[in-house]
Write a protein that binds this DNA or RNA. Structure first.
Lengths: 257, 257
DNA sequence: TCCCATGGTTTGTCCGACAAAGTCAATCGA
DNA sequence: TCGATTGACTTTGTCGGACAAACCATGGGA
């Protein structure tokens, strides 16, 4: 045979049938011919339409299910569906951990993302968002001595802020970093007693600034809030240039749902 | 039976076996016990270990394959692998399109993300990145009359910039928006003859600023570059509040690989 | 009218089988 | 001796059929 690279024809390869099945169904959804919530049909029926065995259909379905394009109803039947943001975000977060990004990368990116988010929120925030954040802060005050719960609420606070910003692209862009960044606050609150109150204070002042549509104050307090995290991180004896621990990947991405 | 909601015990449900298989393998990879590139074993072998049928193993594998945690080598055997960024990004982009985000959301988010990116790039840019961007600009100058190719190079330029910034979290955060944003420049270049030269000039000036580590100039030109896009978009008669067209989803996300 | 039984439908899993394609080693020819 | 060819072995992709469990609707009985 001739040496590699100088052939006239490339090797022709047939995609596997299950992949064609998956792509066909995915295309229907992406192009809008199949809308979210519509029933796809039974496995046997799909097998008949595509002219393949049920096992082959099932393998295609598995791929789509993982991608979030189809899901099972309570009756276990197949319905078209749109990929959920939260799922994509946790996958990204996991990928970041597996690729061993450092806390410095996480901090720098979060700083940029949260500053942009709060700037938009100051302009676009509505009453319901203000109420939700108010509720979040009240709940936080009630669990000051529970670092785990407190950090969940911290993550939620920033997610609410992002929703208040009214920009889903930005919201989605910040979420993967956020899911890794804010949980680390738990470790800081555990080691530094002043961590939790400072966090709460920052949240409250950010909320006040939003309510007053005061962009400068909001930016100032968000920055301080994040710089606080950094100081706390370093004071807790950690190095910004360590990679994020694998542990954080395990709590993410509800594997099935 | 009792009415719903007041039962003492929740319904106990067994996850499907193929899901358990997928989760078990995924866990091995996430926790690092299985490293990327390592062989997983054959389907028959896995079936033997898990005590399930080969078909069941295959369904589990499909899910993992879609998630990017395993991949097939040239010999078609199974190897552990890490989810590729590019794949996650295109999935996010597709999801944004399907959720009908508007050009305004895209523009605002891109502005924030690219400004942050260029700010980091000014500090961290290295020789290889400068060279790659130089090459990109030279190539762009050679295809000024081909909007499609030109826009690919535009997208690439900003990706190179992001790589130059040396922050993978930021790089990953900006990519989904970027994959939708820059392709729209094609439409603008097609309608406005001054579009392409202005784009090139902006790229060149940004590159010069990076080389001189001049943060102010880099920020200025990036901003102008993006504002130009916006002006072009509006001058082309488009409305920022339209949702991004479904068409853009179809060119994304190489479905299998 | 309300409850339960019953049957039909669909999924999840198993078994066995085979062709295609890849791997590896031994064999044959120059 | 070295390289190409052959052929056995392995593994995947697909098929067909089978069955238990879970769900749904329907109809009969209290």
């Amino acid at each position: 045979m001739a040496a590699g690279g100088s052939e006239r024809f490339e090797k022709i390869q047939m995609p596997a049938a299950y992949r064609l099945v998956a792509e066909a169904i995915e295309r229907e959804i992406v192009t809008g011919r199949l809308r979210a919530g519509e029933a796809i049909g039974t496995e046997v029926e799909l097998g008949r339409q595509f002219g393949v065995n049920r096992s082959t259909v099932r393998e295609g379905i598995r791929a789509l299910e993982e991608g979030g394009y189809v899901s099972r109803g309570p009756d276990r039947r197949l319905y078209a569906s749109l990929p959920r943001y939260s799922r994509l975000s946790s996958r990204m977060s996991r990928a970041m951990v597996l690729h061993e990004v450092t806390f410095r990368e996480l901090y720098d990116a979060t700083l940029a993302l949260e500053m942009a988010t709060v700037a938009h929120a100051v302009v676009n925030v509505g009453e319901e968002s203000l109420a939700a954040m108010e509720k979040n802060i009240a709940e936080s005050e009630a669990v000051m001595d529970d670092p785990v719960r407190l950090c969940e609420l911290d993550t939620d606070f920033h997610a609410l802020l992002a929703k208040a910003a009214g920009n889903r692209v930005l919201e989605l862009a910040r979420e993967p970093a956020s899911l890794l960044f804010f949980p680390t606050a738990e470790m800081i609150c555990r080691r530094l007693p002043e961590g939790a109150p400072r966090m709460l204070q920052a949240h409250r002042l950010i909320l006040d600034a939003l309510r007053a549509h005061d962009a400068a104050a909001a930016a100032t307090w968000m920055r301080r809030h994040l710089v606080d995290w950094r100081k706390g991180f370093e004071r807790a004896g950690r190095d910004l240039d360590e990679p994020v621990e694998r542990v954080y990947a395990r709590t993410l991405a509800p594997p099935g749902e």
